[in-house]
């Protein structure tokens, strides 16, 4: 089982966490002006890279707080964790 570093609680087993998908996807600023294609991109389309991926996790069985992580989807290596609201850190890959 993989260990995930919660920014508040430290390393815990993966089973304590839930996954939240791609990070840094913000609600459209002008929703009334969006075309169908733009809505589709917001609702249904997410990045799906093989390699470093900024994503959200929540420590459901711990502090219950959300945070962001950068994880390599090819190797499953956790490269960085950071708090919601912080900018995406640079990681060496």
């Amino acid at each position: 089982m993989q260990l995930i570093r919660c920014p508040w609680c430290g390393s815990r087993e993966e089973a304590e966490f839930h996954y939240g998908g791609q990070a840094h996807v913000s609600y459209p600023e002008n929703p009334a002006e969006l075309s169908d294609a733009e809505w589709a991109r917001y609702v249904f389309f997410r990045d799906n890279p093989r390699g470093p991926f900024a994503e959200r996790w929540v420590h459901s069985a711990g502090c219950r707080r959300w945070f962001n992580a950068i994880r390599d989807t090819g190797t499953h290596d956790l490269l960085a964790v950071y708090r919601i609201g912080d900018p995406r850190p640079e990681v060496a890959t």
Binding site: Q2, E14, A15, Y19, E55, R71, T73
Partner: peptide, 13 residues
């Protein structure tokens, strides 16, 4: 497994 991954392996839980 809940997370995105290309690693062809998953978690034991």
């Amino acid at each position: 497994d809940s997370f995105n991954g290309y690693g062809q392996r998953g978690a034991f839980h």
